[in-house]
Design a protein around this nucleic acid. Structure first.
Length: 501
DNA sequence: TTCAGCGTTGCTTAG
DNA sequence: TCTAAGCAACGCTGA
């Protein structure tokens, strides 16, 4: 008979620190003298679902997690295959008695949970699920709001104002040898390389953001040491087109769970304490609260990542246009600022929040009239910090489908970038075809006379695309379409509402 | 039921 | 270099 095991299933909690579910598993293994097996499930076809950069970040995070687990006298076991297929077999082989896991609201995990929990119930495996990916228990917040979703940020803040946030959990005690399995050195459970997953590392550009908990904590501590900077932080005053990020880039670490949102919260509280500091929504704490806001909305709304069947989302008749979508996704719209942003995203996996505003507005209500769902899929592929709730929530915001309604405020692909980068240095970096263009034409190269284009070595329509739409004209037409969609939406709503007369 | 007040981050022009 | 007004006028919250 195989010795009984305790499993902690890592998903979006790729860390040792402040991991309540992991601590539960360790305690359980120690108390019962069972074998502890921390696992991560990876589908060999994963490269078809997530982009190369994010996959590299994930593999680095797993490697770091394994290193940190070994310091605790255990390791990470990689299970290959679909979780719903491979886990039942593995649990039988290992004689698993106890499973701990973090609660994740991404539908992908919710669907897996249903299958795995049913299997566990039928096989007398005790399952412990812990809410630890957010600062607050979003279900509790929804309950406090009478089961409905808070539709404004201010409303959300009022709901969490008096909520206590539990302290972080420290985990540094080494595991007893009796919890170690015999096959701890087996290569059968090693982390696959990028090559094994079908990605040639040589086709990726130099890694700008190294994945993993160790890097996450270093980055957090580096920024928290800059107390004045933290206290003065105001998001709208940071630049979307600086050559190096003007914000912390902690997001990929939080989305993968390399960094605990609660740890970030407590560190921020420490830095703010006793000092004059900026406030939400613009402060750093405010940024963390935006994440909580979208998680609450995502948890409380059916079909949150879709337009149809989504109660918070205004129905807008977007048009399918693969040519526009592709030009946008590849950074070939002919608008240098938009293209620079999309190329930075593709190369580096991260762009500034306001840059996301610019390109999301451009794809949807601003210029191309393509559905936010299509844009969200491209972001899912390319962003290191992809997060189900935040991605859908922000796309709805920018397309004025939910949370934000002033559709007549449209970002200009020419004017917006100039505010923080007059010379167009950011464009020169990411749209290198235009790097020799005179500043006068860097945001509007189609206006450059032929002689200037020739002198700069880049002819518009040959070396760099002609702009695919005329922003000045089309954004006004789109505003009319938005107005019509809102009007229709309002009529439908008033029909649904029961009338007293 | 109604309505004033308000909302992280628009652009352009005039002064 | 900064501020304010005009553009045309949204929905949510709470009294």
């Amino acid at each position: 008979m195989v010795s009984p095991s305790v499993v902690h299933w890592f998903r979006l909690d790729l860390r040792i620190h402040d991991n309540l579910a992991l601590r539960n598993a360790i305690n359980e293994a120690e108390n019962r003298k069972h074998i502890l097996r921390p696992i991560y499930v990876i589908d060999p076809e994963v490269k078809n679902r997530i982009g190369k950069n994010r996959l590299r970040f994930l593999i680095q995070s797993l490697q770091n997690l394994d290193t940190n687990l070994r310091k605790l006298n255990t390791r990470l076991y990689i299970i290959k295959g679909m979780a719903t297929v491979s886990l039942p077999k593995v649990f039988e082989n290992w004689n698993v008695k106890y499973l701990s896991v973090q609660v994740d609201i991404d539908p992908e995990y919710v669907a897996q949970d249903e299958v795995i929990e049913k299997f566990c119930e039928e096989n007398d495996i005790f399952v412990v699920k812990r809410v630890q990916h957010t600062v607050y228990d979003v279900q509790g917040i929804l309950k406090k709001n009478n089961g409905s979703v808070p539709l404004t940020y201010q409303k959300f803040l009022s709901l969490v104002r008096d909520q206590q946030v539990r302290e972080c959990i420290e985990l540094n005690k080494k595991l007893s040898d009796c919890c170690k399995p015999e096959d701890i050195e087996s290569n059968d459970y090693d982390i696959p390389s990028l090559e094994e997953l079908g990605i040639e590392e040589s086709c990726l550009i130099e890694c700008k953001y190294q994945g993993g908990e160790t890097e996450a904590l270093n980055r957090l501590n580096m920024y928290m040491a800059k107390k004045q900077w933290v206290c003065a932080f105001e998001k709208p005053n940071t630049s979307p087109n600086s050559l190096e990020p003007s914000t912390t880039v902690l997001s990929p670490y939080i989305s993968h769970g390399c960094l605990s949102a609660k740890l970030f919260y407590h560190k921020l509280k420490q830095v703010e304490c006793g000092n004059r500091h900026s406030e939400p929504p613009v402060s750093l704490m405010g940024q963390l609260m935006w994440r909580e806001f979208y998680y609450t909305a995502g948890a409380g709304t059916k079909n949150f990542d879709k337009m149809v069947g989504n109660s918070v989302c205004t129905q807008i008749p977007w048009k399918k246009n693969d040519a526009y979508l592709q030009a946008w996704a590849e950074g070939k719209t002919g608008y240098p600022f938009v293209d620079a942003i999309m190329r930075q995203l593709r190369q580096e996996g991260w762009i500034h929040h306001l840059a996301r505003h610019m390109v999301a507005c451009f794809l949807t209500r601003g210029d191309l009239w393509v559905s936010w769902e299509d844009g969200a899929k491209v972001f899912e592929d390319l962003l290191l910090d992809y997060d189900w709730s935040l991605n859908a929530g922000n796309w709805m915001w920018l397309s004025a489908s939910a949370f934000f309604y002033k559709y007549f405020r449209v970002y200009s692909p020419v004017a917006f970038g100039k505010k923080t980068d007059k010379e167009g240095m950011y464009i020169r970096k990411y749209v290198s075809e235009l790097k020799k263009y005179p500043t006068e034409f860097i945001y509007e190269p189609w206006k450059a006379p032929k002689s200037v284009q020739t002198a700069a070595g880049c002819t518009i329509g040959v070396d760099y695309p002609k702009r695919i739409v005329d922003h000045d004209k089309i954004h006004k037409e789109n505003m009319q379409k938005m107005s019509a969609a809102y009007k229709l939406n309002k009529e439908k709503k008033s029909l649904k509402r029961p009338r007293s007369d």
